[in-house]
């Protein structure tokens, strides 16, 4: 469990980082932020990057900004930054609630929000958050800057639309309506384990009915996504057990479940049914 040899680059500015990344990307150069996923994978030699571009000393990447519409999260913002609310909006409380479910405390003090999105583990809470809230990913390289919508960003298990030479410099999350409700639930075997299924929901109430529902499911398919069928089962319905069960059932029936040696597709559907309903129940508290 010793990583294969690699060269570590420690740029101080974003320009420098992007230049180095452009140079080393063809030789399997990778960005190192918190290292909570990459380093264990390297220790197992499942990844053997020849170069690491360590962005931990790059200036200005640790900022969280907010213009009243969008929350901007920089590349080096750690999970722990969300332990308390970062914005006076329901989004702040949502991020705080979700952050508590990420792994264990020491990991949260080191791992980064953007690193989690770049790594794109199907079970990632932040990937689920980005997919559910229609985040925009800002990728930068020496070639320029581009914005990638969440629906275009996730391409599969640990696979994204980021090019080899692109750094995920920022993630933009739209602020929620002031009266928005949210709920989150995830299932794991032990406290702090990877979620075997997770759900994040947001909606508002208009005239006693659910409106603008977002129902995201993570950990169940190769990538997290919004489940349109579940949202349709909610919109225009009164919040409550009947609508929540219908949405949960819709989500469970439309997903194409991941299977592995510990998990059958049938069981994954059971979990999706449970986490969606529970996320919706939580949203009422």
């Amino acid at each position: 469990m010793k990583p294969a040899p690699f060269i570590r680059h420690v740029p101080k500015t974003l320009d420098e980082a992007l230049k180095i990344l452009a140079q080393v990307a063809p030789e399997d150069g990778r960005v190192l932020a918190g290292g909570q996923s990459l380093v264990p994978i390297m220790a197992f030699r499942l990844a053997k990057p020849a170069h690491l571009v360590d962005i931990n000393e790059v200036e200005n990447l640790d900022k969280i900004g907010n213009d009243g519409k969008i929350l901007r999260i920089g590349a080096r913002v750690r999970h722990g930054a969300f332990h308390t609310s970062v914005v006076d909006n329901p989004l702040g409380a949502l991020l705080t609630f979700v952050a508590r479910h990420i792994a264990h405390y020491p990991i949260r003090m080191r791992g980064t929000f953007c690193g989690s999105l770049a790594h794109a583990d199907p079970a990632s809470e932040w990937c689920l958050t980005a997919a559910t809230l229609d985040a925009t990913m800002v990728a930068k390289s020496t070639r320029g800057e581009r914005a990638i919508k969440a629906v275009d960003y996730f391409e599969g298990i640990m696979s994204t639309a980021l090019a080899e030479d692109e750094l995920l410099a920022e993630v933009h999350l739209p602020l929620l309506a002031a009266e928005a409700k949210f709920g989150f639930n995830e299932f794991s075997r032990r406290a702090g384990d990877f979620a075997m299924s997770a759900s994040l929901v947001t909606y508002t109430i208009k005239n006693g009915k659910i409106a603008g529902a977002h129902v995201g499911v993570g950990g169940a398919e190769p990538s997290p996504r919004r489940i349109a069928e579940a949202e349709a089962a909610l919109n225009g319905q009164a919040p409550g057990d009947e609508a929540f069960r219908a949405a949960a059932e819709a989500a469970a029936s439309v997903i194409e479940p991941l299977e592995d040696h510990q998990t059958t597709g049938e069981y994954r559907r059971d979990l999706v049914r449970a986490v969606v309903r529970r996320a919706l129940e939580n949203s009422q508290q």
């Binding site: 197992f44 032990r190 406290a191 990877f194 040696h261 510990q262």
Partner: peptide
């Protein structure tokens, strides 16, 4: 409740880390 070494049909262990082979933690 938790711990199980699982081989696939080719005899390859699929539980080769402590994320897959799960001893209880203090929380359990």
């Amino acid at each position: 409740l938790l711990e199980e070494i699982i081989y696939d049909e080719h005899g390859v262990p699929t539980t080769a880390t402590l994320a897959d082979y799960m001893p209880p933690t203090a929380r359990e």
